[in-house]
Simulated assay, not measured.
Amino acid sequence: MNIRKATIDEAGYLSELSFRSKAYWGYSEAFMEACREDLTILPEDILASIIFVLEDEKVIKGFVGLEIEDDSCLLSNLFIDPNEIGKGYGRQLWQHMLEVAKGLNAHSILIHSDPYAEDFYLAMGARRIGEIESTVFEGRKLPLLEIPI
């Protein structure tokens, strides 16, 4: 297993992986299409944020992204290939992300969580601090979580 920085030529693959990973939760086709723009990773995103991929046998199994915001970070992405969920890849990426955030002297990481992913983040030590409005669906509230560093 190897965790490394994403390269800009992987943007399309990471976009497709994030879309498949979100669809894992059984969202409707219309819901998923409405989310497509938010799930798209552009080469500029890879340059502007900190995105790491986890490879196993040279195949990308998942990725994590952080954005720096003053003395904290925002978890912008954490997606695992749906065929690989439950194999520990999410935990490995989570631990790597914490180490990166520590290295950046961040005091905390904020997470705008998908409702289905909230239990994973809580199990990893995050705590719910409120809700945040969805950027895709007006009136839809998403869990807002935080993990202190």
Rank of each mutant, 00 (worst) to 15 (best):
M1E: 08
K5W: 02
A6D: 07
A6K: 04
I8T: 14
E10M: 07
L14K: 04
L17F: 10
R20Y: 13
A23M: 08
W25M: 12
G26S: 09
G26V: 13
Y27N: 12
Y27G: 00
M32S: 06
E33I: 10
E37P: 00
T40I: 13
P43V: 09
D45V: 00
L47F: 07
L47Q: 14
A48N: 15
I51N: 02
E55K: 00
D56T: 11
V59L: 12
E67Q: 12
E69M: 08
D71L: 07
C73W: 14
L75S: 05
S76D: 10
N77D: 11
N77H: 15
L78A: 03
I80K: 01
P82M: 06
P82R: 06
P82L: 07
N83L: 15
G86M: 11
K87G: 01
G88L: 05
G88H: 04
G90P: 04
Q95M: 09
M97L: 15
L98H: 00
V100G: 00
A101S: 14
A101F: 02
K102F: 02
K102Q: 06
K102G: 04
L104N: 02
L104Q: 04
N105C: 01
I109H: 02
S113Y: 13
D114G: 05
P115C: 07
Y116V: 04
Y116S: 12
Y116N: 15
A117P: 03
E118G: 00
D119G: 04
D119N: 12
Y121P: 08
L122S: 04
A123K: 15
M124L: 11
G125A: 09
R127A: 11
R128F: 05
I129Q: 01
E131S: 04
E133W: 10
V136T: 14
E138Y: 12
E138T: 13
G139C: 06
G139L: 12
P143L: 05
L144E: 09
P148H: 11
P148Y: 12
P148L: 14
I149R: 01
